[in-house]
Each structure stands twice: as structure tokens, then as C-alpha cells.
Design a protein around this nucleic acid. Structure first.
Length: 266
DNA sequence: GAGTATGTTATATG
DNA sequence: GCATATAACATACT
């Protein structure tokens, strides 16, 4: 499910679903999802409170109450669904927040990579997670300045949430594809304008995904995401075949013709 | 059974 | 400190 656009869609769902409802009870079905908060404290902190603001930085969901912030990270397979007590509980429900008006917010997570934490403030979460600025909010200038400091493959830098937060494996590939940059190019080899352009591509891709509800089939045919598999025909016009390599431990699909590797700084 | 998966983090190594 | 590689977490699906 979740990279920035998917998390943003969840954020909006939560915002329209539970903003302003008083919390009656919190049920923790999987203790290991909790991150630096005890079950007792989490329940105490939330009971009787109201979510008054639902924010997001990168892939981190931030549900603010009068007294603190519930931080939800969806991991690889997490989701948050809003319903009522008559609905069937999702199969992989890990945490349930019941509201006084009968509504219910359920954090579900099949593979259990997600995490739920609590802090007094958003700043505390940012510091604890070492979260860089959100990719949709940060300026291209700042993005370029932060990225260029690293002497690592640009793809690894894009995935490093402390540099800039929100980009995941799929959108990293798409942004690099659109920008025509080989994923293994060292970030420090890229020029300021190349990095700015890369940032624009990343933002455009994610914005576009948001407008189609993250349904990849509704993305333009020119997008790599439509057919992100080794051996597929490049969705550009060059007829090349897509290649697959590993960068920073992650599967990386790119077009060898459009994204050439450069071995010296520009 | 083998291989793969949208994420993060700890650990070891250079 | 920086960068890389690897494993670990856990489970479904092809």
C-alpha cells in the first residue's frame, strides 16, 4: 500500500472520518506494533480525548489530540479504515480506537511492519524518527542541497527518509525514470538543476497518483509504474527493454537507454 | 518449495 | 562519521 500518495489518501480518510469524535476506548490487539509507548500509557493518553488535527510528514501519519500525537506508520501492508461497531473487523486488525459516537478506527496490518507510537508533540516524533522534510513541501533548492551532500547512489538517497521523507521504492523508480537519471548515479555527481528537476518529477508523479486515487492503471501510459517489470518494453518511445538491478538492497527497474550511468560529476 | 514484496532498523564491515 | 551489505521483522501470493 503505502508510499506518500497512499498515506495521504489514508490521512484524508481519517480526517473526514474521525475528526472531532471523542475517544471512548483503545484496544491493542498486537502489542508488538507499539513503538516507545506502553499499552497503558497509550490508552490513558487517548481515552476521553479528541483528534483535532490529522497531519502527515512523509509516510508518517500524525493524529493530534488536545494533549499529544498518535503517530502511525503503515509499514509495508498497513491501512487505517473507518467504520462502526456493526462492521466486520478487518482480518489483520492490530489496533482499534472506538469513539463515543459509535464510530471506529481500525489500524490493520497484514505483515506487521507497521508501528504506532505516541508523543507530546510532532517535533518529538520528527526527532525520534529523524524525519527529513516532506518531499511535497520541501523546496527544490533545499531538496537539491540536502541530496547533494551524499556520496551514494541517488536512488538510496531518495529512499533515505532522513534526507527527504515520503518517497518509497516504486515512486523512486518512477521519478528517476522520468528525470532520465540512472539509479546508481552518485548523488554528488548530479548538478543542482538535475536534482531540482528530479524533485519536480517526484512531486509530479506523486501528485498525479493522488489524483487517480493511487490506482496505477489510471496513470498515463508513459509511466514506468504501469509496467514496472524487467523485460517489459520501456513506456517511453525508444522501444528499449526495462532492466532490473538491486540498489541499496531494493529491486530497481529502469530503462538502460533513457537512464544512462554517468561516472563523473557534472 | 522458492522467490518476491510499496518499509525501517540493527548490526557488521570497510 | 559515512557508506554498504545483510539480516531481521512477518505473511501472503505467484
Amino acid at each position: 500500500m503505502p508510499e506518500l500518495p497512499e498515506v495521504e489518501l489514508v490521512r484524508r480518510r481519517i480526517e473526514t472520518g474521525v475528526l472531532g469524535s471523542r475517544i471512548e476506548e483503545v484496544q491493542i490487539l498486537d502489542l508488538k506494533r507499539l513503538d516507545s509507548v506502553s499499552p497503558e500509557r497509550l490508552k490513558d493518553e487517548l481515552k476521553g480525548k479528541t483528534f483535532i488535527k490529522v497531519g502527515r510528514i512523509g509516510k508518517q501519519l500524525l493524529l493530534g489530540t488536545e494533549a499529544g500525537v498518535l503517530a502511525i506508520h503503515l509499514g509495508l501492508t498497513g491501512d487505517v479504515v473507518i467504520g462502526t461497531s456493526v462492521d466486520r473487523l478487518p482480518r489483520f486488525a492490530r489496533l482499534i480506537v472506538r469513539f463515543e459516537d459509535g464510530r471506529r478506527m481500525v489500524f490493520e496490518d497484514m505483515r506487521r511492519f507497521g508501528r504506532v507510537g505516541f508523543a507530546r508533540s510532532v517535533d518529538e516524533i520528527v526527532a525520534r524518527k529523524r524525519l527529513g522534510p516532506d518531499v511535497m513541501v520541501v523546496s527544490s533548492r533545499t531538496f537539491a542541497e540536502r541530496a547533494r551532500r551524499h556520496k551514494r547512489a541517488i536512488k538510496s538517497v531518495l529512499l533515505d527518509q532522513s534526507v527527504v521523507s515520503g518517497i518509497g521504492n516504486l515512486y523512486a523508480d518512477e521519478a528517476l525514470f522520468q528525470a532520465g537519471i540512472h539509479p546508481q548515479t552518485l548523488a554528488s555527481f548530479l548538478s543542482e538543476s538535475e536534482l531540482r528537476n528530479l524533485h519536480r518529477c517526484a512531486k509530479r508523479v506523486m501528485g498525479r497518483s493522488l489524483t487517480v486515487g493511487s490506482d496505477f492503471d489510471l496513470l498515463p501510459r508513459t509511466y514506468l509504474l504501469r509496467n514496472r517489470r524487467e523485460g517489459e518494453v520501456c513506456p517511453g518511445t525508444n522501444g528499449a527493454r526495462l532492466a532490473s538491478i538491486t540498489v541499496g538492497g531494493r529491486t530497481t527497474v529502469y530503462c538502460p537507454r533513457k537512464q544512462r550511468l554517468r561516472r563523473a560529476p557534472r
